[in-house]
């Protein structure tokens, strides 16, 4: 047995199945993140994200006119901001693999498809988290101007991150559908828009005129806005987090089904 084979055998022998899975996910996630920073995409995205959050918070959200020490004006716009920004981060995840043909390399390596899906998803999610963390000067600003409730702010950040994760999982699913990034972007924007509109007050008001209140509640329960609003107000209800998590699990599971479908031909 040659040297390399011995090493591989040892490597797989020493680690259990679980730590092997963890190793694979970590390796795939690491590659994906370095992929973002190897091109200008990451920097362009972060700059645009920060500029837009600033614009919406201060200009459109009238942060200073509100006269309250909270980040409500900041979080208010996140469902809409993410509508375009998250699909632009996630659209390449699988479509690029299919376009380049590297999916054939990736899935013939000793990893299971779900490890690859989770690894890629976590990488993009971590990247979005980084962008979100870079909005920290806002926290300092409210702290300087007044006496904010840090619990509410933390809740807002957690809710925002989970919402980004839900959008991202939807994008992940659409990017597995096509080898064209633009198509993947458009489909995920439409799907995410639906998730917003289902709970957007103007739509609900329209529905309430003719629909049963129970039905209106059901529709609203499917919306990210309904769930994000309560989190953002400082109520970290497990049901809201479960809502976001179930969108992620469902979308990533569907991603797996789609990828298996492609391979089965």
């Amino acid at each position: 047995m040659s040297n390399g084979e011995t090493q591989v055998a040892q490597a797989s022998g020493e680690r259990g199945e679980h730590s092997m899975a963890f190793h694979n996910i970590k390796t795939i996630a690491k590659r994906e993140i370095s992929g973002y920073f190897a091109s200008p995409v990451a920097y362009v995205f972060i700059v645009i994200f920060l500029l837009l959050t600033g614009f919406f918070t201060f200009m459109v959200g009238r942060f200073f006119d509100r006269g309250e020490a909270s980040l409500a004006a900041f979080f208010l716009w996140h469902p809409w901001l993410y509508l375009f920004l998250v699909p632009s981060v996630g659209m390449r995840l699988w479509s690029e693999e299919r376009r380049l043909g590297t999916i054939e390399l990736l899935l013939t390596m000793p990893v299971s498809p779900w490890q690859a899906i989770v690894g890629k998803f976590l990488a993009s999610w971590a990247f979005l988290a980084l962008a979100l963390v870079l909005t920290f000067p806002l926290v300092f600003t409210v702290n300087y101007l007044g006496d904010p409730d840090f619990g509410v702010i933390l809740c807002g950040y957690i809710g925002s991150l989970f919402m980004a994760g839900a959008y991202l999982a939807v994008t992940c699913m659409t990017s597995a559908l096509t080898r064209n990034q633009v198509v993947s972007f458009i489909i995920s924007v439409v799907l995410c828009l639906f998730l917003i509109l289902a709970g957007w007050p103007p739509v609900l008001e329209m529905l309430i005129k003719w629909a049963d209140p129970g039905l209106v509640d059901t529709v609203a329960a499917f919306s990210v806005v309904t769930h994000f609003d309560s989190v953002q107000l400082g109520v970290l209800d497990s049901r809201d987090l479960i809502y976001f998590l179930s969108i992620m699990v469902f979308s990533l599971f569907t991603t797996g089904v789609i990828i298996r479908g492609h391979r089965a031909g």
Partner: peptide
């Protein structure tokens, strides 16, 4: 496995790509 048309991650360096492949193989 060398697939047809030799696909490789376009945004990586040769070194980065080979290191990734090695790590995926448990090295």
């Amino acid at each position: 496995y060398l697939p047809e048309n030799a696909p490789a991650y376009a945004d990586m360096t040769v070194l980065g790509f080979l290191s990734f492949a090695a790590e995926m193989r448990g090295l």
